[in-house]
């Protein structure tokens, strides 16, 4: 009896192997794995791509550059596309984590605005294709704030105790505290970081919560008066609640570019390039921009936007405002110091 069961088990296992192998062979559709920020694409675009090219797309999301990096770094995953920000792209280039893109397969790259080429994080435009850009600023509710918002100082104003939402993201929160003190948001000076830490600990009793994507529900429903957000999300929230407005503080802020890259984990580089090219089709780039509200580096897509959006200072701030903004640089080993400072802020009572 025992041996029959055993044989049966072996047989069914073998059968299973054979079946699973044949089913693999029968399936000749390629699947690419796309790893993107939450709320950062018009998902109908994915279906369009699948139908047009007969390629399956497996779509996954992350909420910070760091968590994306930590998932790709150890390997064992096979993402074909990721959309990290500038400083993360330069870190990934440095660590040899990205494929060079074959631009013969991405003819639509010609539509990308010259201002977004030759940037410091990818100086020779070899590894990334800009997808969206934006700034960090203060989103506030005009019915709750009766003064002009033009400085990070307002986030330290006792009047707004428990009405302030900060970003649960080390670079943004420590960065704005540094800029408020007049330092660079890429500082490597310990004493500057310590001062920023003290300021953030001082601010902590005023903060309602540290959040990332949850900020949208909270600001739209009027749960808080002030919050630190990315400009694209601000456009989106203002359209849902006209009481909201957005300001880039005079001390300066962060200016970021998110670019499409092909991690070395990719097994379908050619299909990944097709995807990048597709995302740069004017129609598609327009659809995404229109849907998610971030600022597009795509010249044709920008022309297609309503004048109201194309001239909206939230999404497309004036040059002199942008000049004041800094791009994040990769911190290298300083990340550990930032993390420690962040923990001290979070632990402080």
């Amino acid at each position: 009896m025992k041996s029959i069961i055993k044989r049966l088990a072996v047989f069914s296992f073998a059968l299973l192997m054979v079946l699973s192998m044949t089913s693999c062979r029968g399936e000749d559709k390629v699947t690419i794995n796309v790893y993107n920020w939450g709320d950062y694409i018009d998902e109908s675009v994915i279906t369009e791509f699948e139908e047009k090219y007969g390629i399956n797309v497996n779509y996954e999301m992350y909420d910070t550059n760091e968590s994306m990096y930590q998932k790709i770094k150890p390997g064992g995953v096979s993402y074909d596309i990721a959309i990290p920000s500038d400083y993360m792209i330069s870190k990934m280039i440095k660590e040899d984590m990205l494929h060079k893109i074959d631009f013969n397969n991405v003819p639509n790259y010609k539509y990308i605005d010259e201002n977004f080429k030759d940037l410091e994080y990818d100086p020779d435009n070899e590894y990334s294709v800009p997808y969206m850009w934006g700034t960090v600023g203060i989103l506030y509710n005009k019915t709750m704030i009766n003064e002009a918002v033009d400085s990070w100082d307002i986030l330290w104003d006792e009047k707004y105790k428990k009405q302030i939402l900060m970003k649960d993201s080390q670079r943004e929160t420590i960065g704005l505290a540094l800029q408020r003190l007049g330092y660079s948001l890429n500082t490597r000076a310990i004493d500057e970081l310590e001062k920023a830490k003290e300021e953030l600990i001082k601010q902590k009793p005023l903060v309602l919560a540290y959040v990332v994507d949850e900020v949208k529900d909270k600001m739209i429903s009027g749960e808080a008066a002030l919050s630190v957000v990315w400009a694209g999300d601000a456009v989106n929230m203002i359209s849902q609640n006209p009481d909201l407005d957005y300001a880039i503080p005079k001390e300066g802020s962060n200016f970021f570019v998110d670019g499409m890259v092909i991690p070395k984990t990719s097994k379908n580089k050619k299909e990944a390039e097709m995807f990048i090219n597709f995302m740069c089709e004017p129609e598609i780039a327009f659809k995404n921009t229109d849907y998610i509200g971030y600022s597009t580096p795509h010249t044709e897509a920008k022309k297609m936007l309503d004048d109201e959006i194309a001239n909206n200072p939230v999404a497309y701030p004036r040059d002199e405002v942008l000049k004041n903004c800094e791009v994040y640089r990769d911190l290298g080993d300083m990340v550990k110091i930032y993390d420690r400072i962040w923990t001290e802020i979070k632990v402080a009572k």
């Binding site: 990096y69 550990k336 993390d339 962040w342």
Partner: peptide, 11 residues
């Protein structure tokens, strides 16, 4: 704290 070490600090 543990989550942060794995996902953010990479330590």
């Amino acid at each position: 704290l543990i989550e942060q070490q794995f996902l953010v600090a990479g330590d």
